[in-house]
Design a protein around this nucleic acid. Structure first.
Lengths: 175, 175
DNA sequence: AAGCGCATGTAAAAGGTTACATGATTAC
DNA sequence: GTAATCATGTAACCTTTTACATGCGCTT
């Protein structure tokens, strides 16, 4: 769960390849996704930015504004872009979680066309597998299991169906 | 993200209140939910079990089977059940993430009827809020944003709609 | 006897949160 | 003058992962 293969640092790098931002901007952006993914605290985003800077993956520029306090805007360097590509490639096989799927999806522009399709397909297969597994359970155990189990099973089936529909729709549009 | 208010330890206690299980069983159960939530590693579930034992919230019993290696089956004690109730009550206001919603949902039997309805409603309101926010963004920015942003927005809307439908359906059935 | 699924455990290292400290700028 | 939003940062503490170590029982 923590200390995972996929850390905040790498996702933030991806965000900065998309466009220059400050630590505060990054936190705000992630906050808007909070109902789907966990949002890192400032105590984790600022140190990540410092580490990225130390590694030469990003550069800083202080931007002053007439009506706001000054902010440090970070941009990805060419070396940072290369590092992101490496991370994206290395991530291929691992991490089947919703969170990592969404992070990758948000970084769609950094994938090649076929790379993106591969990722969507991978998720599709995964959701499909889980969907089948839950369906089998649902018919085998019928009304079996306690309320919580039945609710989660039911919820999973409903969400999996919606996600599958969406994935297939997007995949079709992209082809 | 890690070291969060909601730790594995508490969720495992909830699982054990539902029914006695071994560390291996717990891991397997969680594995089946991996496409929605992060699964803790053994290096986190076994120590959690030991801590729960030390606190007197669970008890152990070694169960031998003719065709399988012996296993340690943990059961929640009465004190453990009380602790879970406390945790469930304390959790009320905090943690709006999908993960914590699902963990609570899985523990549905430990809620009172009205308590469960409250929790489902809370999630409904939250998803609805995020849905509205994304919809506003979608109309305001129209085709704005890069591909990743548009995909995540679109994905969120689709999933939120499915979840909202499901929540309303369940809420209706429970009333 | 090798390999696999079941089963439990630990220590070091990594990564994250909490709590705190600080300060600019706008609006009331 | 004070509350709110914007903005950055640190250190102690906590939790988790990683990597390793071990062993039973069944099948090939």
């Amino acid at each position: 769960m923590a200390g995972a293969t996929m850390n905040v640092r790498d996702f933030i790098l991806g965000l900065l390849v998309r466009q220059p931002m400050s630590g505060y901007d990054i936190k705000s952006l992630l906050e808007s996704l909070s109902w789907l993914i966990d949002v890192p605290s400032y105590g984790s985003v600022y140190p990540a930015l410092h580490a990225l800077l130390e590694d030469g993956f990003v550069s800083v520029e202080v931007v002053t504004s007439p009506d706001k306090p000054p902010k440090k805007v970070y941009s990805a360097t060419e070396e940072g872009e290369r590092a992101l590509q490496e991370w994206l490639a290395h991530m291929q096989e691992t991490e089947p979680s919703l969170k990592s799927f969404l992070m990758r999806l948000f970084l769609a522009d950094n994938f090649s066309h076929t790379g993106l399709i591969t990722h969507l397909n991978r998720r599709r297969l995964q959701v499909k597998m889980n969907h089948s597994a839950f369906e089998k359970l649902a018919t085998a155990e019928a009304g079996d299991g306690d309320l919580g189990e039945r609710l989660v099973r039911d919820y999973s089936l409903a969400i999996a169906n919606a996600e599958l529909d969406w994935l297939e729709n997007v995949l079709e549009r992209l082809s």
